[in-house]
Design a protein around this nucleic acid. Structure first.
Lengths: 130, 130
DNA sequence: CTTGAACCTGACATCGATGTTAGCTTCTAC
DNA sequence: GTAGAAGCTAACATCGATGTCAGGTTCAAG
């Protein structure tokens, strides 16, 4: 069964990545994920697809748009085993701005977590206040 | 301690917080922000409102929903000068889960920033591969 | 009083990933 | 060959904060 021609279908990929089939099809539509097709038209994914989907999810989680992800995927290592293209200066500029945005987001999150911790501590550590 | 009955109107509050008037009205509608009204119906905010709006923005930035923010605002210090109510156990549970979500988000962001940095470094530091 | 800026309410639009449903086709196991 | 599971496409719905527009009112200054 593992002889060689890997034929993972969308259901299995969804199960193994925790991403819905709907989203996987959407990724394909956005050009983020490619799938071979069986004679009947069913998608067939290679093992690699699992890692690739995980990567995609990470970037989505960081708030990147599919269009941006589309552009950086070819520049990432071991996503598709390809030659890892070099980012154009324009893309680098965009990514730098995204990186800065992420930095600000992290700062905000740390601050907010602090606020939540204060409220939580105020309730658990101080049963009824002063 | 100052002579004046403070009468900051929505335009000034928007300018000073960087939040649109539209959003300020929305905050009020969601119960996050209270405003006195002039005889003619115009909103009038106290100085404190500035800090409060900033707080609200931080929580929104952390991905909290207005309903959640609504519930924790009374438990925060120096937001409204009130007695800083104690969070109910139920709320604490919810906030804890939000805190965990934020933790995961921070982890994801750090990872994604790393990925972006790699791509950027790959382009700027290494003109062509290996 | 008049004029223009600022404000009011209410409604509708947007964005983007994802959920959901419908109707049909393919695959797999018996 | 047949039944049921799994896939396919296409279309519409959702969520939530925010943008935007329209039509009317208030405020401040001349």
């Amino acid at each position: 069964m593992d002889g060689g021609v890997d034929g993972m279908r969308i259901g299995e990929l969804a199960r193994r990545t925790g991403v819905s089939e709907r989203s996987l099809r959407y990724y394909e539509q956005q050009g983020l994920l490619v799938a071979r097709r069986t004679a009947g038209g069913h998608r067939e994914y290679p093992e690699m697809a699992v890692d690739r989907v995980v990567h995609i999810q990470e970037l989505f989680a960081a708030g990147l748009h599919s269009r941006t992800i589309y552009k950086i995927l070819p520049c990432m290592r071991d996503s598709d085993g390809g030659p890892s293209e070099t980012a154009t200066p324009l893309l680098v500029e965009e990514l730098t701005s995204e990186r800065d945005r992420i930095d600000r987001m992290i700062t905000d999150l740390l601050r907010s977590r602090e606020v939540l911790d204060e409220v939580i501590a105020g309730a658990t550590g101080r049963p009824s206040a002063a």
